[in-house]
């Protein structure tokens, strides 16, 4: 029987915490992810099943928290669902069981590197990284955006709190870009 160790997206056994001036970048290795997409014409069934399962299905460009599932909109009638990895490593199977044939569910946990950005005000950093009008958008805003050529999801949890999902294989490049911008911003 194999007993395989896991490596984080940044290539270590433990999730990284990096500080640059007032910025803290925390790699999140404890998030399970899956995509949920409504099957054609099954949105009502999906909504019902999702409600029963504690799965929010927020409006376009929004993130919504919940227990055990949080979710943000990515594509018309499609969401990325977040849950604690410790309890939901098998998130795909759990959601499939809960949503039955009303949705297509796909494992996404290791497709992404999850980074939490924290600083008193992240606007000076983000304006050097992407075209999101960070100052203007409300908390709970979720969007796809390009950061140094990489397609990322950005979720605003507050003026000083952002969750970024970037392509896992480019985690090092993404963190490097954030560090460079942080040196410039502050």
């Amino acid at each position: 029987m194999a007993n395989l160790h896991a490596l984080t997206a940044l290539g270590a056994r433990e999730a990284a915490v990096i500080t640059v001036g007032p910025l803290t970048i925390t790699e999140r290795f404890d998030v399970a992810l899956a995509s949920v997409a409504a099957r054609r014409g099954r949105m009502a069934d999906l909504a019902k099943a999702a409600k029963a399962a504690g799965l929010p299905l927020p409006d376009p460009a929004r993130w919504q928290g919940g227990t055990p599932y949080s979710a943000f909109w990515t594509v018309p009638e499609m969401w990325l669902v977040e849950a604690p990895f410790a309890s939901h490593e098998l998130i795909e199977g759990m959601l499939k069981a809960a949503l039955d044939d009303a949705a297509s569910v796909t494992e996404q946990t290791d497709a992404w590197v999850a980074l939490d950005l924290a600083a008193p005000d992240l606007a000076p950093l983000l304006e050097r990284l992407c075209n999101v009008d960070f100052r203007a958008v409300a908390d709970g805003y979720a969007t796809r955006t390009m950061i140094e050529h990489l397609g990322c999801y950005l979720i605003k949890h507050g003026a000083g709190a952002v969750r970024l999902y970037g392509p896992r294989s480019s985690a090092k490049s993404l963190v490097h870009a954030i560090e460079l911008a942080a040196h410039s911003a502050w």
Partner: peptide
Amino acid sequence: DMDVQLISTTEA
């Protein structure tokens, strides 16, 4: 109107 959903899993 086809019932098809797509997502990339290259990195997963």
